[in-house]
Simulated assay, not measured.
Amino acid sequence: MKILNTIFTLLATSVVLYAQVLISDETTPSSSINSNAILELRSLSKSSGLLLPKVSLSSTTNPAPLPSHIAGMIVYNTATVNNALVATNVYPGLYYNDGSSWYKMDANIPNIGDIKYASTSTDHDGWYLLNGRAITTLTVTAQSNASNIGITGNLPNTENTFLKGKTGSETIGSITGNNSVTLTKTNLPNPTYSVTTQTTGAHTHTYLDRGSGQIQSTEGGLTRDIVDDIAAVSKTTSTAIDHAHTYTVSTGGSDTPIDITPLYLATNVFIYLGK
């Protein structure tokens, strides 16, 4: 095992002591310490790094195992803790302290309950596909976090849906609404139309008479009315007084629903429930 040589370089002015520290595994420093650094680490092999102290945090709001919150403190947390208050959960990684809380130093770290669109179709890095499956099929951590944000039973199934901000009465994860609409009479405008018949005022009507037009005949000295002599004759009524007619008009519709789905890009939807 190679023994690392630690070299400390102290630089001082003639009046005010100004100290800089160089820690290196070089036998002889290849160059002076950077003038802007109070501490510089250097690796001759370029295969070594800085190892921060490892601690086990319990909550972002609890300073333990430190006695108190210290602004600027940086540690590597080794614990995974899911608390009743999701925002205080801690996971393995670098944390810094601002004097009142711990904050994970991951780049763009998501929060529990965050939603994202993605082309991938499988769960990854704490993100779970919203495909309607039972909560019990998820990891223990994901089940706990889902319950904490109000999702129970099953994950929402986002197939053919769009995200919408919920109203006060709606439940997080509920699927409502339709992709089509069917118009009813109450959905139509209510105009008044003026219509006229083809012939107005006094007019005649045609009808089919089964008689020949002869009203009476004489048989055996008696005059008898002719009821029907089989022959059909087209007749016309005499002129009638003014009167109205009613009629109905069919719209020709078939109650086919109207598709109101806009153009869209199909993707998968994921929710972050923690690793």
Rank of each mutant, 00 (worst) to 15 (best):
S24F: 00
D25S: 12
L39H: 02
I23N: 13
L10Y: 12
I38F: 11
Y18E: 09
L39G: 01
S32K: 08
P29C: 03
S24D: 02
F8E: 05
I23F: 14
I7Q: 06
S45H: 04
I23R: 12
I3Y: 08
Y18V: 09
S24E: 03
L11R: 11
L44H: 01
A12G: 04
L41S: 02
I38H: 06
F8W: 02
I7M: 05
A37W: 01
V16M: 06
T27N: 13
I23E: 15
F8K: 05
V15P: 01
T13V: 05
D25P: 01
T13P: 00
A37G: 02
I7G: 09
P29T: 04
V15L: 08
S35F: 02
S45M: 03
L10I: 08
K46R: 08
L41D: 00
L17F: 10
S35N: 10
F8Y: 08
D25H: 02
A12F: 13
T6H: 12
S35L: 08
S32L: 12
S31E: 14
N34F: 00
E40D: 01
T13N: 14
N36I: 02
S45T: 15
T27S: 15
A37K: 10
A12E: 15
L22Y: 05
I3M: 06
L11V: 10
L11Q: 13
L39P: 00
V21D: 08
V21N: 11
T6E: 11
P29L: 06
L39Q: 02
Q20S: 05
N5G: 11
V16S: 15
S35G: 11
S30R: 02
T9W: 01
I33Q: 03
P29K: 02
Q20A: 03
K46A: 14
N5A: 07
S30G: 15
L41A: 06
A37E: 14
A37H: 12
S43F: 13
I33L: 15
V16P: 01
S32M: 07
R42T: 06
T27D: 13
S35R: 05
S31N: 09
A19L: 12
S43P: 04
S30A: 14
S35K: 09
N34K: 07
K2M: 08
S24Q: 07
L41I: 08
L22V: 02
Q20N: 08
K46N: 15
R42S: 14
S14T: 13
A19T: 14
L44D: 07
I3H: 09
S32T: 08
E26Q: 14
N34H: 05
I33E: 00
T27M: 07
R42C: 03
